[in-house]
Nucleic acid binder design. Structure first.
Lengths: 338, 338
DNA sequence: CTGAAAGCGCTAACAA
DNA sequence: TTGTTAGCGCTTTCAG
């Protein structure tokens, strides 16, 4: 909190005008004569005045604070998302409070409440799976505008921005299929979560469109972490011939798979084609570079901030779901015989 | 901002007590009879009351808001640092506002001021190189507690937390030297920046301790980005035999070098030993895994939050500089002949 | 143990 | 165009 307690009255006295004139002048109101404004601004600068937004917000009953709550910031993809969101909101003149929930529903409820207590105008959230608007707002912060990104809020109560997971997954699977692979696997992700279902659905669609029986394919869910994926693929490697190509739930999972393959004596992009999803920064570091589905995180963030800001302006506007079409980025990991 | 305007008077009325009793009860003051407290709490819950911290802070002239300003959030290392800082402060009951400066001094001054206006109790910052306390506070937010991480604020005006860059760099260089390499290079980083100077100094110390003439070594500074490093090493590769081992300024730089080597027909960890610095998450993804200097980001973040919180409690305490000893993590990229 | 009253720094009618 | 007057929702002496 600002230590120096220079306040409106102080600068009013210095400029020889009234408190409210100063207030208006600081807001650059057209009601104030230019000369007076200059006088006020000069006095303010001279006294080292720091505007107290908290006080202004209290009086005005509004704020330019956005609460950003993210399910897992240690996951590089979500960290990238958070950064993009911060940028979007900051660019629009908001200031963002951030919090991690570690996929913990309790924690999530707590931080949303904390943000509400701090006067957040709205919340942008990548929620824990299974979150509903009611539990988020504890039935008590009704009307707190919330937009969710990547993962929906149950009951369609909130604006929602996400990549087209089905299309992306289908496209990357098709890219693999185009190489005449017939034994594919979909690996990673948690059963019964929306993102998993969508990405798996895209995979299945592509497979059946290619006239391949799903029985020829393996579905291997696991927590979407590097460690879990590595462990899973290492165990799988012991149990017989690997699939020719593995469509991974996410890049993090793909990194884990790649690592696990390595430890099992196989090489991604050589013995097995591997693809990721999200196209995070790491994808083209080292070799083989990882084929992935680019989901335009910046664009998602931009849509999210626009959505939320629009809702702030008009709370009654209909709820909207927006989807961004992803793009397959073909790199080394998915092309064998290199 | 909370839409529902349930306020202290409302719950006072509902509970049949006064405003101030409610306030005290909500703070769990020992002055209030347990029974009254219960009554108040129940009424509050029932009415869906949301505590207004902004108002409380205004009155109390304090806040539990920390402003976190980071030079480059698109750099995965700083993103990891930001996440660790958020966690530390949140764990201590603070809420953090975050902002990126993109290494832009103007932007940096702006966000610090914005945070001050929002009533931040203190600032944790990884500053743009060359930042001084005076410019940060525009001579006007005097006394705003600031702690810097990784990079110092000029003039030693602020608490400062950093890894021991010299020791880390020296250690990782020594690890290379132990393999009897004689032609080493230090690559990446910007001249005249404190981190660069330290890491380079560690390199030089190790080299001369090994009895090798610095003339046998190359110093190749460049912006600490993947792209710049890749470009630099590719150009260097055209100009004759590469050094046997390259100590990189950071992991990001090392990734760039590894990539550039690949494009030039060489292989990190096979033709050239490569090491990074920071030990970010990506280091052991793919192969070769990257030897790096682990700098205990979590610990740095913890010290930073403790420092700042202590200063909040006692603004007069002497300024402290804390250093964390790093640890070399040996992986594949630095061991040839595998 | 509880209530009354003043005020944090600002904005917003309403007057002048 | 500017000043006066009330508060925003909360905490905090000070009385009772």
């Amino acid at each position: 909190m600002t230590k120096t307690s220079i306040t409106l009255p102080d600068i009013a006295a210095a400029a020889g005008v009234s408190k409210s004139t100063v207030s208006l002048a600081l807001q650059d109101s057209p009601k104030i004569k230019p000369e007076t404004k200059r006088k006020v601004l000069k006095a303010a600068k001279q006294l080292g005045y720091v505007y107290n937004r908290a006080a202004a917000n209290l009086r005005r009953r509004s704020s330019e604070i956005i609460g950003m709550v993210i399910n897992d910031l240690t996951n590089p993809f979500f960290a990238e998302l958070a950064v993009a969101l911060e940028r979007s909101f900051t660019d629009s003149g908001y200031v963002v409070m951030m919090a991690n929930t570690s996929e913990d529903m309790q924690q999530q409820e707590k931080v949303v409440r904390t943000f509400a207590e701090h006067g957040a105008a709205g919340i942008v959230i990548c929620p824990v799976f299974g979150t509903s608007y009611e539990q988020l707002t504890s039935h008590t912060m009704k009307g707190l505008p919330i937009v969710s990104v990547m993962r929906p809020i149950e009951g369609n109560a909130c604006d929602f921005i996400s990549p087209d997971n089905i299309a992306g997954s289908q496209a990357v699977t098709a890219h693999l299929l185009a190489q005449s692979f017939t034994r594919l696997a979909f690996l990673g992700g948690l059963d019964n979560t929306s993102v998993y279902e969508s990405r798996l659905a895209g995979f299945k669609t592509a497979v059946s469109k290619a006239g391949i029986a799903m029985e020829a394919c393996e579905i291997l869910p696991c927590p979407p972490t590097r460690e879990a994926a590595a462990k899973l693929i290492m165990e799988r490697a012991k149990q017989g011939p690997l699939p020719e190509a593995i469509v991974c739930y996410s890049d993090v999972v793909a990194f884990g798979v790649s690592f696990g393959l390595d430890r099992s004596g196989f090489k991604a992009g050589k013995d097995v084609a591997v693809t990721g999803f999200d196209d995070i920064q790491g994808c083209n570091v080292f070799s083989p570079s990882l084929t992935s589905v680019h989901i335009y995180t910046d664009q998602l963030a931009k849509l999210a901030s626009e959505s939320l800001i629009n809702r702030l302006k008009d709370p009654e506007r209909p709820i909207s779901n927006q989807t961004v079409m992803p793009k397959v980025m073909i790199r080394e990991s998915s092309i064998l015989n290199k």
